[in-house]
């Protein structure tokens, strides 16, 4: 079973998925991404300011998902490519995000390598394309 995300739920996350809009906590000044109802750092702040993140970051960790390990929504991609890399990226502004990597370098992925957010199709469900960010080598 895929981790089904309904269209309204995906729609609500469009600012973060399409242009990396984070939430700056007005209590502690840290950026929450993805946005939270209560700041995950100070556990108190519930008032935020929208901040557009740069999309620049570095590889914090990574793994490679083999064809058989892909969830159904990424099955087409896995079938086409055989496998695909997934990263944890530490963004310039601090937050860490889980993301797929595009155009991985032939010499391999390295911890600490610079990456940049790109706009891609994440998957398609119910005939509706779900766009969002992935990361490519910077």
């Amino acid at each position: 079973m895929s981790a089904h995300i309904s269209i309204p739920m995906y729609q609500r996350a469009v600012p973060q998925r399409y242009r990396l809009t984070g939430k700056l906590c007005k209590s502690c000044g840290k950026i929450n991404f993805p946005p939270k109802a209560v700041c995950k750092y100070c556990l108190q702040g519930a008032s935020f300011e929208d901040v557009r993140l740069s999309g620049r970051g570095a590889v914090y960790s990574y793994t490679v998902i083999a064809g058989g390990g892909a969830p159904p929504e990424f099955e087409t991609e896995a079938r086409c490519k055989g496998s695909y890399p997934v990263l944890i990226v530490e963004l310039e502004e601090g937050p860490r995000v889980i993301t797929q990597m595009v155009n991985p370098p032939e010499e391999g992925i390295a911890i600490g390598m610079s990456v940049q957010a790109v706009f891609r199709k994440i998957y398609e469900e119910e005939g509706v394309i779900r766009y969002g960010f992935k990361f490519s080598p910077a």
Partner: peptide, 16 residues
């Protein structure tokens, strides 16, 4: 085009 690209994803990148 890569499997996860279409004219809209290319349009966004060129616009940026």
């Amino acid at each position: 085009l890569d499997i996860d690209e279409d004219v809209i994803t290319m349009a966004v990148e060129a616009s940026r």
